[in-house]
Every structure is written in structure tokens, then in C-alpha cells.
């Protein structure tokens, strides 16, 4: 009797599990190409970059990340259109909210990068020029733009792939920055 009842419940259970799986698969919010970062909660990787040629900036290396509190690390390039879209957001974040942002200029021509910063504003406290893309590999970056939150101890706490939309800034990035700053 007991096994008989089980026999009737089993298909229902299988259906529910499969249904839940399909529901998850159909979720429009889910990005199937998103890759979890292997670097979350790990110290920022070792790298040392010189400044963009022709600028007087100090360059950027691992040590600069743990010394001055919570930092946003932004990979950008002048040839990257989505970077242009998110740039005003970064300028506002650094000017109005006083967030420390450092930039890694990914495979860019120095003169193009300089022009871009003049034209659109420079939100970066420091910029390193990653000419051969090696620093990007150290960070597990797959393309620009990408943005990381690094805490005051120099540990990576969050990774954002692609341009930052205003609602993502509000819902995902700012709450994390605030929590880490306290």
C-alpha cells in the first residue's frame, strides 16, 4: 500500500523538480553567459602598471589598492563604446559621492586615452596602462568594461562585467560600497 502511494507521488515530484528547473531557466533576469569570478574574497592580484604615456599620473600597482580605503577598479579603453556609456556615471560617483576610483586602461593608444579623459572627464585617482593585457589576465578580465570593488584590506569583494547601468549602480554597487566603508 505504502509503495503504491509512493508510485503515484513520484511522477508529481519529478514534475515539480523539472518545473522548478525550467522556471529558473526561463528567468529573464538570469544571464546564462555570466561566469562567477574566481577572485571574489581573494586579495587583488599582483600587478604593476606605468601611467598612460604623456600623463603625469602615478601609475597603478597592487600596493595602491590596500592603502586608501575602499576602491573601485575600472577597466576601460577609449575604443570601447560601452565604456563611454558608463563613464559619466563614474565621473559622478567620484565627484559627488567621493568614491575612490582607479582605472586600468586596457590595450589603448596613449594619445587616444589622453583625449578621452580630456573630453569626458577623469574620475580616476590613479591610472595604469595595461598595454599587453597581462594585468587584465591577472584579474580574470574577459573584456572591457569591467569593474571590481576592492575593500580597504585590498581584497576583491565584487565583480561587475560590462557597463554599469544606473539601476545597477544604485542596487548593486552603492549598497556594497556603503557597507564596506563602515
Amino acid at each position: 500500500m505504502w509503495t503504491r502511494r509512493l508510485l503515484f507521488i513520484l511522477p508529481l515530484a519529478i514534475f515539480l523538480i523539472a518545473g522548478a528547473f525550467f522556471l529558473w531557466g526561463l528567468d529573464p533576469e538570469r544571464d546564462p553567459s555570466a561566469i562567477p569570478s574566481a577572485l571574489i574574497d581573494r586579495p587583488a592580484p599582483e600587478f604593476a602598471l606605468s601611467p598612460i604615456e604623456g600623463t603625469e599620473g602615478p601609475g597603478l600597482s597592487t600596493a595602491d589598492l590596500a592603502s586608501e580605503g575602499v576602491t573601485l577598479v575600472n577597466f576601460f579603453a577609449s575604443w570601447c563604446l560601452p565604456c563611454r556609456a558608463e563613464h559619466p556615471l563614474l565621473v559622478r560617483l567620484s565627484q559627488e559621492d567621493g568614491v575612490r576610483i582607479v582605472g586600468i586602461n586596457y590595450k589603448d593608444k596613449p594619445e587616444e586615452a589622453r583625449k578621452w579623459l580630456e573630453e569626458l572627464g577623469d574620475p580616476y585617482a590613479r591610472i595604469g596602462a595595461d598595454q599587453d593585457g597581462r594585468a587584465a589576465i591577472e584579474w580574470g578580465v574577459t573584456g572591457v568594461p569591467e569593474t571590481f570593488i576592492v575593500d580597504a584590506q585590498g581584497r576583491i569583494r565584487y565583480r561587475h562585467i560590462g557597463p554599469i547601468h544606473p539601476n545597477q549602480l544604485e542596487n548593486e554597487i552603492q549598497p556594497r560600497l556603503q557597507a564596506l566603508r563602515q
Binding site: I35, S37, A38, L39, P45, I137, E138, G140, T142
Partner: peptide
């Protein structure tokens, strides 16, 4: 590579 990009 796995340390940076994960098993992916």
C-alpha cells in the same frame, strides 16, 4: 589560469 578565470 583556473586561479584567475575559474574552472570555466
Amino acid at each position: 589560469l583556473v586561479a584567475r578565470y575559474g574552472d570555466y
